[in-house]
Design a protein around this nucleic acid. Sequence first.
RNA 1: CGGGGUGUAGCGUAGCCUGGUAUCGCGCCACAUUUGGGAUGUGGAGGUCGUAGGUUCGAAUCCUGCCACCCCGACCA
Length: 491
Amino acid sequence: MDIKKVKRSEDYSAWYNNLVKNADLAEHSDVKGCMIIKPYGYAIWEKMQAELDSRFKETGHSNAYFPLFIPKSFFTKEASHVDGFAKECAVVTHYRLKVDPDTKEIIVDPDAKLEEELIVRPTSETIIWNTYRNWIQSYRDLPILLNQWANVVRWEMRTRLFLRTTEFLWQEGHTAHATAEEAIEETRKMLEVYADFAENILAVPVIKGVKSANERFAGALDTYCIEGLMQDGKALQMGTSHFLGQNFAKAFDVKYVSKENKSEYVWATSWGVSTRLMGALIMSHSDDEGLVLPPRLAPIQVVIVPIFRKDDEKTMVMEKADAYYHLLKKQGISVKLDDRDNLSPGYKFADYELKGVPVRIAIGPRDVQNQTVEVARRDTKEKQVMSAADLEHKIPHLLEQIQQNIYQKALDYRSEHIHTVDSWDEFMDALENKTGFVSAHWDGSSETENKIKELSKATIRCIPLNNIQESGKCILTGNPSHERVLFARAY
RNA sequence: CGGGGUGUAGCGUAGCCUGGUAUCGCGCCACAUUUGGGAUGUGGAGGUCGUAGGUUCGAAUCCUGCCACCCCGACCA
């Protein structure tokens, strides 16, 4: 395979890019900023989707689908929303090609110009709220709790595999409520769903919080978020949940009649996570040997590698390997038996480490003799010889242990990388030398936030939920502050 | 979009300064021997040198435009 080895500690960026390609997750396409998600990477995304989707349904949501194209006039109805997205919109202006009679080349037919341009959705609030107008008359029509799985396009200047691509896959929830309280409750509920998913499935600890005004979603009154910390000490926004107030209801004239027979504007939320989570997953756990997948997301949880020399050994070993395969499969474990005989065991070991398979079981003639197998775990690289009779009850337990261990490791890393500081010098020192989150006082103004960003390249990642209230002084201006906020350099 | 860098076979590369039809490793195909940590031998296949022009008898090499990617900014999920 001749993998170019780049150490994580030497060049994090190159390590990340290599890992994404070498582990067969994705590759660059010939379309600028757009990636091809390969089968193995897509299998992981599908597992994420399945986990999230069942959580959405458990919390009362249904899936629906809205158009990829949004008429420009819809898009421009909510002022701050346009401001936020205008710079990164792909626009469809024509609907037909033709052969140029002079050059014989295929060109855009100038006669096929659209009356009204269509925006390729960067997010779907506008078209959905334009639709909700027709769906909502009475308080009895509320709430509407919808989610859609979709692709969206944001024409970013600089892209990175999974973390920021021109087109990306995501889910976007769009809910409509009769009261502000109910909408806020929904916003927070979905943030909890995201946090639960991130920690228990991705094994990535997250900090739940609220964005500062500067970092707020275009059109939102409040943006809640989960923030993760990557192994290079940079923060990553992993999901957002927005309380949109009545902004979109007003822009699209969506009203309902209350019990009291009064006409009221509807309250909105939206929330989303994207294929960026793949980036979070990769950057949180992986090492110089490759990907490290938490068992709950691994497309292959256990791989069985048979080892044999001659045909009689092969027959003997394969018989056992096959039996173990079915034994584990019966327990609902996703298991693969790699019986390719043109590759050496050593090659396979390295390859499955690169792909992040949590547990590897090797079985050779010696094991058949002794009724044992060699069990190796990806997270710690530990190997043990296990009695074959123990496989059935020990493997599920081991997978669970690995899931917990990966999470704990990430949690320990994060704990070591939250620094509390009270002065500008300490602040800069923490960012430059210690990396990670920096908890510091801030006077609450956007000017100060911008100034800090300019001077340090760090942004306010969030104001943590249930934040301790304490009086202090802003690290930049010295103005009074009543709580600390979390700063970090971020993706 | 601004600054810097890179682009040669599926992957990683040498050659470029000083122009003469492309080097090596991995992978791929065939056969044989192998298989408990990335096997070995022999024989093979694979390249419009990112792309479009220009200079030249002749361009991977020199010049120009364009494209893609990487790093650093600005923007962002």
